[in-house]
């Protein structure tokens, strides 16, 4: 271990706190999803301790809501696992996107930052990486505080831990609130309503529309497949339709 000078330590803390501060506004959007997950998990019959544990182990909001919805419709473990694995595939893209900036870090740092690499943490941290003195040498680029030392992983850590804490606390809040909701409220219907809201945001481009339409029709056509495997088939059909629509759109231009 090398000794850390006081100014270097202060620079780290400053970078970490800057990450927390820049991540903070996004928490407003995260809290409802965390609560909804907690409420939905109870309605789907998950034990509260396991629902809370899943927020730490899986730590991916959309996938956790999808798992809850599929449990509600009595899907088997394999279709749920496949769907969640597909939905989370985008994290490979984030991983590739930050790879150049964190490659020089020790493995324990890379393991920790990988665990914290969610949609919202990525969105904020990547801005810090991409806007700092572009064109310069990377080690020198981040040296606004200590010359020659890249401290931006502390900023990334601030973003990631802020989101982590919000996700755990809002899950807990949802579990507490969910336990008081009477079953006749049909509170589990809030999960598909969330999917409807997210869908309308995603449907601006034609390829997304084709994917969604084909997947919705597929879900009805394959409804009778066992263990809800029809959902996986429907999503794959939607992907085919999306890729096909994109190709056709490019060909027409």
């Amino acid at each position: 271990m090398t000794t850390i000078t006081a100014p270097a330590r202060r620079a780290r803390v400053r970078e970490f706190l800057a990450g927390c501060r820049d991540e903070a506004p996004l928490q407003l959007g995260v809290v409802p999803f965390g609560m909804l997950y907690g409420i939905g998990a109870l309605a789907a019959g998950m034990p509260a301790w396991l629902a809370q544990l899943a927020s730490a182990v899986v730590f991916a909001g959309a996938a956790q809501l999808v798992i809850v919805q599929m449990l509600t419709s009595a899907a088997g473990a394999l279709p749920i696992g496949l769907t969640a694995a597909l939905l989370n595939l985008r994290h490979v893209l984030y991983s590739a996107s930050v790879a150049d900036y964190v490659r020089h870090l020790p493995r324990r740092w890379r393991l920790l930052l990988a665990y914290l690499l969610t949609d919202e943490a990525y969105a904020v941290a990547i801005l810090r990486y991409q806007t700092a003195s572009p064109g310069k040498d990377q080690a020198a680029a981040a040296a606004d505080t200590v010359p020659g030392v890249d401290l931006r992983h502390w900023y990334f850590l601030g973003c990631g831990l802020t989101l982590w804490a919000t996700w755990q606390l809002s899950t807990a809040a949802g579990l507490l609130f969910g336990a008081t909701v009477p079953p006749e409220w049909d509170i589990d219907f809030a999960v598909p309503l969330t999917f409807i809201a997210l869908l309308t945001l995603l449907l601006r481009e034609r390829a997304g529309q084709a994917a969604a339409l084909a997947a919705a029709l597929g879900a009805l056509a394959f409804a009778t497949l066992p263990y809800r495997l029809g959902l996986v088939a429907a999503i794959l059909l939607g992907l085919l339709a999306g890729v096909w629509a994109t190709r056709r759109g490019e060909g027409a231009r």
Partner: peptide, 17 residues
């Protein structure tokens, strides 16, 4: 592929629900 996964998943689950 990743661009289409979210809309396809949410649409399939909503239709099914």
């Amino acid at each position: 592929l990743c661009r289409h996964i979210a809309p396809a998943s949410f649409a399939a689950l909503t239709a099914s629900a």
